[in-house]
């Protein structure tokens, strides 16, 4: 299976969008060579603003700049944008419905041996709880690019959760992003697996492993954390007796919480939440971390088998 890193597609798509939108500006927090926004600096040096190591100011300045009809895309790590800059994000971006696009790179567990300081596994909870915010978590490079195109055309604040390392490409090149959509990747009657971000390809793989064991899973991808078409989610889960959510995020306040909220209101059923069990991570190889937190395909499959048998 073809793989591609979301950060690569982030940089390439910024360049693409820069050609399409002469008012698009990239504002970086001294990480452009990690997030790959440096590609934009090469293409459009006059529209690349290095804001240094000062994320609160970066966030606030982006909001101010957007009032002049410019479209700032922010480049930094998720952890600095949603934690350190949470206050200006809330006050100056969300509360003013600023037209600021937040490229939150290195979200989730797999941040390249940086450890718990850099692993943002609380971002979805934080940003989703802020009114006015759109929160997106693409499954692959194709969806990331489509979301960036949609976000740039949309007027208002968007948080885009990006992962560092290469992951499998699931969608075809003609994929068009629609906010709120729940995407059914696989159909099966025994269990509904719901996932977001680059955890989705792993969840799909888990479903293949389950099939070998005679368990048939529906796999749903929720790339649009907010807004979410709740009716679509309820219908997509259908009659499945068991729902299992999987995410590179704390099980508090992330996708699992979201799915439990929606189903409890419209079609209550048992929801098992696989994810970070309210602990901080550590620096280790990706495979180790995924195993540790039960997020590798075999671990997910094993957990589902325990639940259904």
């Amino acid at each position: 299976m073809k793989t591609q890193a979301l950060r690569e597609v982030f940089g390439e798509t910024l360049v693409e969008l820069g050609a399409q939108y002469p008012n698009l500006v990239v504002m970086d927090g001294d990480l452009a060579n990690s997030t790959k926004a440096d590609k934009f600096e090469v293409a459009y040096p006059e529209r690349f603003l290095e804001m240094g190591i000062a994320e609160q100011n970066l966030m606030g300045a982006a909001a101010g700049l957007s009032t002049l009809g410019l479209i700032p895309w922010i480049s930094s790590f998720a952890v600095f944008l949603t934690h350190r800059a949470a206050d200006p994000l809330r006050m100056l971006v969300a509360q003013t419905h600023a037209n600021v696009k937040i490229g939150a790179a290195y979200a989730g567990l797999l941040t390249g041996y940086t450890g718990k300081t850099h692993q943002d596994v609380e971002d979805l909870a934080i940003v989703r709880a802020m009114p006015e915010m759109v929160v997106l978590a693409p499954a692959d490079a194709v969806e990331a690019r489509a979301m960036m195109h949609w976000a740039t055309a949309y007027i208002g604040p968007v948080y885009l959760r990006l992962a560092r390392d290469p992951s499998p490409v699931l969608f075809k090149e003609d994929y068009v992003f629609e906010p709120g959509r729940v995407i059914r990747l696989k159909e099966g009657a025994d269990v509904a697996l719901v996932s977001t971000g680059v955890q989705t390809p792993r969840t799909l793989e888990a479903a293949r492993l389950l099939k070998k064991e005679g368990v048939h899973a529906t796999v749903l991808h929720v790339g649009s954390i907010k807004p979410l078409n709740e009716t679509e989610l309820v219908e997509a889960v259908g009659e499945a007796a068991l729902v299992v959510t999987t995410e590179e995020h704390n099980v508090y306040g992330g996708l699992g919480g979201l799915v439990a909220e929606v189903l409890s209101a419209h079609n209550p059923k048992r929801v098992v939440r696989i994810g970070i069990q309210d602990v901080f991570g550590e620096s280790a190889p990706n495979e180790f971390l995924l195993e540790q937190h039960g997020l590798s395909p075999p671990k997910i499959a094993q957990r589902v088998l325990e639940e259904v048998r």
């Binding site: 500006v25 529209r47 606030g60 300045a61 909001a63 101010g64 700049l65 957007s66 700032p72 100056l92």
Partner: peptide, 12 residues
Amino acid sequence: SFGVGIALGAKL
């Protein structure tokens, strides 16, 4: 910071 953004945007 908001003012820095506006002043930067004005220059651009």
